[in-house]
């Protein structure tokens, strides 16, 4: 789930860069040095998630788990995701420096939004927690795909059908993300609830 360098136009690149800068600034502001170590470890874990390939149908997809990171870190997920993305650009040349802004907005924006939106549900029963997990994973991926399609369409209206293709092809990924996030949330709630900011 990256847009490569060289596809988007200047206004879209700039818009993405501004949004990511603002999001990262808010995230950093809410982060004090006592929590920064935890955030960097979760950012590394988020990076590792992208190396995990889960089978689906005849192929496999790699995990993203933005929604999960949003649930755990709230606004802190923004800088964490931006850092993980820039490391991916350096290690694998996926994405790049100029599209980092757009890619950051596409992945971190929905992650933070879904995290903040569904976190209150986590205090409920186990069923509610699992629902929150599924919704956070599913919706974050769905919104990311919508934003990605939107960025392509805004760049060049000729990309409309490609954007539609991107959206459609991400549907199975949304389901997987939802299911995996749901199980991880229920696991964390039982094993170490403080990760989800819940009192044991």
């Amino acid at each position: 789930m990256h847009i490569s360098e060289g596809i988007l136009t200047a206004p879209v690149l700039t818009g993405g860069a501004v949004l990511t800068t603002v999001g990262t600034a808010i995230g950093l502001k809410k982060l004090d040095y006592d929590r920064i170590m935890t955030v960097s470890l979760l950012s590394a874990t988020f990076f590792v998630a992208s190396l995990i390939h889960v089978p689906i149908g005849p192929g496999s997809v790699h995990l993203l788990l933005g929604g999960l990171l949003g649930l755990i870190l709230g606004w802190g997920a923004f800088p964490a995701i931006v850092v993980a993305l820039s490391l991916q650009a350096i290690f694998f040349q996926y994405g790049g420096m100029l599209v980092l802004g757009v890619n950051g907005t596409i992945i971190a924006g929905p992650a933070v939004l879904c995290g903040l939106l569904f976190h209150p549900l986590l205090t409920g029963t186990r069923k509610k927690q699992m629902t929150a997990g599924f919704l956070a994973g599913f919706c974050a991926m769905f919104l990311s795909a919508v934003l990605m399609a939107g960025a392509l369409y805004l760049s060049d209206s000729g990309f409309l059908r490609v954007a539609g293709l991107v959206l459609a092809s991400h549907f199975p990924v949304m389901l997987i993300e939802g299911v995996i996030t749901m199980f991880v949330v229920s696991f964390l709630a039982r094993v170490q609830p403080e990760i989800l900011s819940l009192t044991p």
Partner: peptide
């Protein structure tokens, strides 16, 4: 079952990295 196993593997990685961070 596969998805649940992957989730638990990843969840355990999270737990370990959280404690390591502390």
């Amino acid at each position: 079952h596969t998805y649940q196993t992957y989730s638990h593997l990843f969840g355990m990685t999270l737990v370990k990295s959280w404690n390591r961070g502390e």
